[in-house]
Structure formats: structure tokens, C-alpha cells
Amino acid sequence: MNPPVIAVAHAAVGYDGRAVLRDVSLTVTAGEVVAVLGANGSGKSTLIRSVLGLVPLSAGSVSLFDRPLRRFRQWERIGYVPQRLGAGGGVPATVREVVAAGRLARRGILRPPGAADRAAVDSALRAVGLTDRANDAVATLSGGQQQRTLIARALAGRPELLVLDEPTAGVDAASQEAFAAALRDFVTDGGTVLLVAHELGPLRPVISRAIVVHEGGICHDGPVPEPAGHHAEPDHDHVHPHCPDEPARLWSI
């Protein structure tokens, strides 16, 4: 068995006294591609944000690469892709500048960028198909291209683990394909992936395991569930399954 990359044990998260995650345990081992599925508000984003320490746990523990989160320092081993790029205060930044920020974890804050940094940024831009937009302002890109910029930023740090929060939400088909290809290459090179998704689309063949979050708990952990009922129709891309304890009419027809 491969060593665990992420280990979550009995984690609980609450905002303002309201429980968002309840007693969640999860282990992701090296080389796995795990999709976290679930309806809006089920707690799936909170789960991956708590894995990264962006949301504090009220109980339980998280370990990354066999180290408790509090003592984890090797952030260059992790590439994080947030849901979307913030608009900021309107100061422009080029695609290359945003992607270059992905090298900071490896380089440190004082060393100026060198040839290795530039090469890594170039290859990350190539991996997501944005080489020709490198010097354009990020704000002028489409939503899908902005998302690819964020993926390139994560890849530029040459991480071992990619954590992605809804990387394909509202992204055009061309960008979804480009993203799926980049992810396949990453996995072929031995990378581990944890991603939150609402729809899997072209990502489906890459996913090795699915976790379904429902009302703050994990209700399915195993193979990617087959869409049921009208969800299985060809034009319906809505693959998050519903938990068995939901009313039957939602689950099957």
C-alpha cells in the first residue's frame, strides 16, 4: 500500500455554532485521484479547505505527508487551485505573473527567480495551453482561461499533491478538455489529486475514487457512482449522486 498523503481523522468544522462537517475521516494515498462530490452546501469545499488549514477544525486532526498539519512546512509539495481568481483592487497582472507566484513555495520569498523558475512557468503554461496568452492581463481572459491560469500556477511549483476546488465549474468545453489533459499528465507522472467537483465531465476517466459528502458527513467512499434515472441521460452531466437516505424519488425513477 502506498504511503498516505492526506489523512483526516474524525474532523469536525463549525461556523458560528453551526456544524458544517461532522466526524469526517478520510485517507488519500499516493497516486490516487479522489473526487469529492456532493450537493451545494454539503460541506465538500469546507472539507478540502480544512485539509489545507484554511478552515480551522473544531475537533479531529489532519496530517499531510505523515505530518500533523500544525507542524507541516513542506508546502512546495502541494499545489492548490481555488475556485476562482479574486478580482483584487483592479491592479492588472499578466498570466505569467500569476503563474510565477506558484514558484514561491519552492524558491522562498527572498531569492529572485532564476532559470529553473522560468522553465517551470513555461512548461506549466504549455500544459494548460496558455503559452500564447502569457503576457496578457488575466482580467481579459475568459472564465475558463482564468481557471487554467490558476491550474498552471499550481503546476508551476511541481507539486506532488494537487488540491482543486471545483476546477471545472462553469468552464467552457475547450478549457475542460485542456484541464483533463493536464491532470492526466500530472497523474501519469505519479501525482496525487484531491478535487471537489459538481460535474465530472471529461475528468471522469481520470478519477480513481469518489467520496460523496452529504450534510457534513461522508456517505459514499469508493468507485465513481453511476448516474441514475434522468441523471443518466446523455445531455445530463450532473454526476453527483444522492445518498441512499434521501427520498427515493430523487434517487431512482
Binding site: L52, G53, Q74, Y80, G86, G88, L104, L110
Partner: peptide, 27 residues
């Protein structure tokens, strides 16, 4: 000028900077 890449990262996307292990609070 020297800290531009780090200060840019923190000002642009604070959560990403935190996951990069940057000393966000210090910056």
C-alpha cells in the same frame, strides 16, 4: 522591490499565499 513576488502573491490571493507556506501574517 525585493519582496515584490511575495507581496504580490499575498495581495493578489491571500489564501493561495498561505497554502504556499508564505509568512502571510508577517508580510
Amino acid at each position: 522591490l525585493v519582496l515584490r513576488p511575495a507581496l504580490f502573491a499575498v495581495s493578489h490571493d491571500e489564501e493561495y499565499a498561505r497554502v504556499s507556506g508564505l509568512p502571510v501574517r508577517t508580510l
